[in-house]
Amino acid sequence: MAVSVPSLNWLRVFEAAARAESFARAASELNMSAAAVSQQVRALEERLETQLFERQAHAVRLTEAGRAYLPGVQQALLTLQSTTEGLFGANRAEQLYVRAVLLFAHGILAEGHGDFSTQNPQITLQIDTGNSIGDFSQGFSDLQIVFGNPSAYGAQGEALFSERLYPVALPEIAAQITSPGDLLRQTLIEVGTHRAGWPHVFESSGIWPGAVKYIFADSTIMAFALARSGTGVALARAPASDRAMAEAGLVPCLEGFSVAGQEAYHLVYPDRAALRPAARRFREWLVAYCAERS
């Protein structure tokens, strides 16, 4: 049976009491009486039908269930506080929330963050990552950077750049590959969430793959980790994957060999005219930054 989310007050009291290991100290922090803290904790335990604290004479200790519950409660309260302050606090115009595809965030935003911050020191940028449509439907963001069909994510937007695909592996494996046909004798690491993968590379190159051994990963970052372990050959997705490729110690397998991908990265948002000032500045910076690298 589903359990409804408890009262926010109960959760705040639980978190303070757990952190202080004392109802009295939690009461002082929250400007409540110790009896009121105890009462709200008891109400939470009754709602959850689970004991969260072991009561002692002058202290309380979390039960196993309480210890398991605490990190999630703390994260939820922190997210709620930061979002509230960012949207409605005194500095709300200078808070910026961006959600981006993981590979783009790792390969483009992480590298460019310093440049943006230097130009806009008054803006606090929070970057969250995701890969699926479901990831991008959770929580608030001013702007989203997605890969694929932009209409599935936002009402308005613009293309940033597309990608080029080419095989990469550890240097000792790459040295064994001197022609595209040599790829067919390797284990190929495929990212199943992309439209353009190894079959697209083979078709674009006029190669009939026949029987090929594949293993699957859920992201390019994971595919590179597998390639780094010597498992097989992965596909680079330049330029977003350049940084991850270098960090994994991978090299191109065939110099000058690449094919164009089928999709592009897009910046999306509900309404350009309604963007907050920080979001408008980020949009202008990102479009120019990506144009220099495409």
Score class of each variant (00 low, 15 high):
Met1Phe: 06
Ala2Thr: 14
Ala2Gln: 12
Ala2Trp: 11
Ser7Asp: 15
Asn9Asp: 11
Val13Glu: 04
Val13Thr: 11
Val13Tyr: 02
Phe14Glu: 05
Phe14Cys: 04
Ala26Cys: 09
Ala27Met: 08
Ser28Thr: 11
Ser28Arg: 12
Leu30Ser: 08
Met32Ser: 08
Ala35Asp: 13
Gln39Gly: 09
Val41Gly: 13
Val41Pro: 09
Arg42Glu: 11
Leu44Glu: 06
Thr50Gln: 10
Gln51Met: 07
Ala57Asn: 13
Ala57Ser: 14
Val60Ser: 06
Thr63Gln: 05
Thr63Met: 04
Ala68Trp: 06
Ala68Met: 06
Pro71His: 05
Pro71Gln: 03
Pro71Ile: 04
Gly72Lys: 10
Thr83Leu: 14
Glu85Thr: 13
Glu85Cys: 12
Leu87Trp: 06
Leu87Val: 12
Leu87Ser: 07
Phe88Tyr: 15
Asn91Cys: 12
Gln95Ile: 09
Tyr97Pro: 03
Val98Gln: 02
Ala100Val: 06
Ala100Asn: 00
Ala100Lys: 04
Val101Ala: 14
Leu102Gly: 09
Leu102Ser: 15
Leu103Asp: 15
Phe104Trp: 11
Gly107Asn: 13
Gly107Tyr: 12
Gly107Trp: 11
Leu109Pro: 05
Asn120Phe: 15
Thr124Ile: 11
Leu125Cys: 04
Leu125Thr: 09
Gln126Asn: 14
Ser132Tyr: 03
Gly134Asn: 01
Gln138Ile: 02
Ile145His: 01
Pro150Met: 04
Pro150Asn: 01
Ser151Thr: 15
Gln156Ile: 02
Gln156Thr: 00
Arg164Met: 14
Leu165Val: 06
Tyr166Ile: 02
Val168Trp: 05
Leu170Met: 13
Ile173Ala: 01
Gly181Lys: 04
Leu183Ser: 01
Arg185Asp: 00
Leu188Trp: 01
Leu188Val: 05
Leu188Ile: 05
Glu190Gly: 01
Thr193Ile: 12
Trp198Phe: 06
His200Glu: 10
His200Phe: 09
Ser205Ala: 07
Tyr214Ala: 01
Tyr214Asn: 00
Ala217Asn: 06
Asp218Ser: 06
Ala227His: 01
Ala227Lys: 03
Arg228His: 09
Gly232Arg: 01
Asp242Cys: 10
Glu247Asp: 13
Ala248Thr: 06
Ala248Pro: 08
Pro252Asn: 06
Val259Ala: 12
Ala260Glu: 13
Gly261Ala: 13
Glu263Val: 09
Glu263Ala: 12
Ala264Met: 12
Leu267Asn: 00
Tyr269Gly: 03
Tyr269Ile: 02
Leu275His: 04
Leu275Ser: 04
Ala279Asp: 03
Phe282Glu: 00
Arg283Asn: 05
Glu284Gly: 10
Val287Ile: 10
Ala291Arg: 15
Ser294Gln: 15
